[in-house]
């Protein structure tokens, strides 16, 4: 492997919890991701996926260890690291078009790149909805808009935090292909958080399996399959079974850890 584009070196992050103790959201996590790679993070709720993504984005700082981009320590957010949030996070006072253009305006390049906004609206399949407000469009459309909003900055890395989590499976499959398409065309490195094993295998070069309390990487799996991939291939199914097993999601039915 060549020099990694993104590197986490022994990052740890502890959050104070309500009764004065600490939650080890991440403990001594190290991960290397090379340029152009598509990596998925998968694991049960609370295993620190969002925390890791936020550290790479520069939105939070690790208490120990460091995250690096191109060998340089990440010390704050920047437009070279795009972020698509777990909860759709469009600005409600902007139209779809203004939301997509927000990154260009933030960097002061809106005038030169005005035409790009149209191109990204088209890319996200939102023609005809340019002037709509976020509350007037569907969840899938909103997620496409936030994808476009993050991509318009031409980030070196795109951090996607369960972008498809809240969508129905039709929209989900369609968006998975859109994301793959974007990835192949634009060559951005992708770090993709998901709860869905199929999605992880379908999309990624590598699947990073994480475990909670403390948040750690338990295993990294290379998905060697040719693209385009088929969800019903024997190899696909086998890999899915083995990942599910690693996540303790198959086999005997266990007593639930918590009740509602």
């Amino acid at each position: 492997m060549s020099k990694p584009l993104i590197e986490a070196r022994g990052v740890s992050r502890v959050y104070a919890d309500a009764d004065g103790g600490g939650v080890e959201a991440l403990l001594d996590v190290s991960l290397e991701i090379s340029k152009g790679e598509f990596v998925s993070l998968i694991g049960p709720s609370g295993c620190g996926k969002t925390t890791l993504l936020r550290l790479i984005a520069g939105l939070d700082e690790p208490q120990r260890g460091e995250a690096l981009l191109d060998g340089v320590k990440i010390e704050g957010p920047s437009s070279e690291r795009g972020y698509v949030f777990q909860h759709v996070n469009l600005f409600p006072w902007f139209t779809v078009e203004q939301n997509i253009a927000a990154g260009l305006k933030a960097r002061g390049v809106y005038k030169e790149r005005k035409d790009d906004v149209k191109a990204f609206v088209r890319l996200a399949g939102l023609e005809g909805f340019e002037k709509s407000y976020p509350h007037q469009i569907s969840g899938g459309m909103a997620q496409r808009a936030s994808l476009a909003r993050a991509l318009i900055n031409d980030p070196k890395v795109l951090l996607l935090d369960e972008p498809l989590g809240a969508l129905d499976s039709f929209t989900r499959f369609a968006l998975q292909d859109i994301i793959l398409d974007l990835w192949e065309k634009r060559g951005a490195t992708m770090i993709f958080v998901t709860h869905d094993v199929d999605e992880a295998i379908y999309l990624s070069d590598r699947v990073v399996i994480m475990t909670p309390r403390p948040g750690r990487i338990s295993e990294i799996i290379d998905v060697g399959f040719e693209r385009p991939r088929h969800r019903n291939d024997a190899g696909f199914m086998k890999l899915r079974a083995s990942i599910l097993e690693k996540l303790n999601l198959v086999g005997e039915r266990k007593a639930p850890e918590y009740f509602l």
Partner: peptide, 8 residues
């Protein structure tokens, strides 16, 4: 956060 992440 969204605004920070896009470089504002």
């Amino acid at each position: 956060d969204a605004a920070k992440a896009m470089g504002s």
